[in-house]
Amino acid sequence: MSDAWNWNWETSIPSQPQAGTDLLEELIRQLENRNWLAHDLFGIRLAAEEALVNAIRHGNQSDEAKRVHISFKIGEDRLRLEIRDEGPGFDPSDVPDPTDDDNLEVPSGRGIMLMRNFMSFVEYNASGNCVVMEKVRGPENGDDDE
């Protein structure tokens, strides 16, 4: 675990669909300022968006009395996002695999899979109402140079 975060933002937002938009824009701006690659930014935006939507809609059931608690930390080569809702939580292993043939045409259920694919590390707490995601910064070049 990196102990050298050089940007750290903790806040909470109401359980409204667009409440996280400005937050994500600021996160992306901070990463752009640190020259993170476009491909990393795409995946981070996607994973963070999916996690926020899950927290608001599924966790807090869009109950505006409940908030979503957010922590963003940026280090030299690593990003850490923590998103916690005030709902009862869930068991991520209960979410069906959206790539099973039987589920391919089900309109929902792809968010967690995308988070896991685009981030380096995704873990839920025991009750399932808090997700921690990390992204290790991609290499400067798209080639195989070390």
Partner: peptide, 16 residues
């Protein structure tokens, strides 16, 4: 340039 899984859901319903 960007779409989320909720948008994919709409495309799946459109396909159906």
């Amino acid at each position: 340039e960007f779409l989320s899984s909720a948008a994919l859901g709409k495309l799946i319903t459109l396909d159906k």
